[in-house]
Simulated scan of single mutants.
Amino acid sequence: MSLSPSPRLPRGPRRRSLLASAAGAALLAGCTGGPGSGEAGAGPSAVERARARAARDSEELAARYAAVIAAHPGLAERLRPLREEVVRHAEAFGGVRAASPTASGTAAGTAASPSASVRAAGPANDSDGSDAVPADEKGALALLAGAERKLAGRRTEALLDVPGESARLLASVAAAGAAHVFLLTEG
């Protein structure tokens, strides 16, 4: 009797592989020069710039989540935990806490009604420049997944530019973003 492969093949990245890749990147980046090492660009100003950009990127992503939640209330239960995590990422990088979407559909100064759009400069921009929340839920989830994917990739690239703890934080948040992509595209 031959053994057949499992009928349910696992999809997406495994938690261990996400953590291992993030940890490996953090270790590599953490071993590079830091303040006082004599390397150019490793001083506090480079770290401060990287943290400010990461905070701003997370705040913009949180605003995009808020707009999607307001436009598609049926997705709120699924998206609120992810948005709250993105807000915590912004705080970890030194950003300010964004307000939660209210029943009226506004968040952090972003008007968000079912036909609203969100200004998404930076990581959440689509390649076509569109910033409107798609009318269908599947399109809205794809919009968020694309924004998370782009931001996770940019943060992974930025690991080379920052030392130690900042690199570890970037790696951790990039891994969380990759996990968000998986959660947004599954189910």
Rank of each mutant, 00 (worst) to 15 (best):
S6A: 15
G164C: 08
D57E: 14
A107V: 05
S117E: 11
R56G: 08
R56L: 07
R53H: 07
R64A: 07
R80P: 00
R78C: 00
T185Y: 01
T106Y: 05
G146R: 10
A111D: 11
A179S: 13
G43V: 00
G24H: 11
G146Q: 02
N125S: 14
A90Y: 04
E84S: 15
A111M: 08
S37P: 03
A46C: 11
S6G: 08
A92Y: 01
A66L: 04
K150I: 03
A121F: 15
A107P: 00
T32W: 09
R149D: 14
V162L: 10
K138Y: 11
H72R: 03
H89F: 10
G109W: 09
R14F: 09
S166P: 01
N125H: 14
G24Y: 09
A63K: 00
E39V: 04
E165F: 12
A135G: 12
E84W: 06
L183E: 15
A174M: 02
A90G: 06
R15G: 07
R14E: 13
G74W: 07
H89W: 11
H72M: 03
A132R: 12
A152W: 02
E137C: 03
L82V: 10
E39F: 10
P81Q: 06
R49N: 05
A124V: 10
P7W: 06
S115R: 09
S113R: 06
V47L: 07
G36K: 09
L28F: 13
A52T: 12
L144G: 02
S4L: 15
S45T: 14
A112D: 02
A66C: 15
L170V: 08
R97H: 09
E148P: 03
V118D: 00
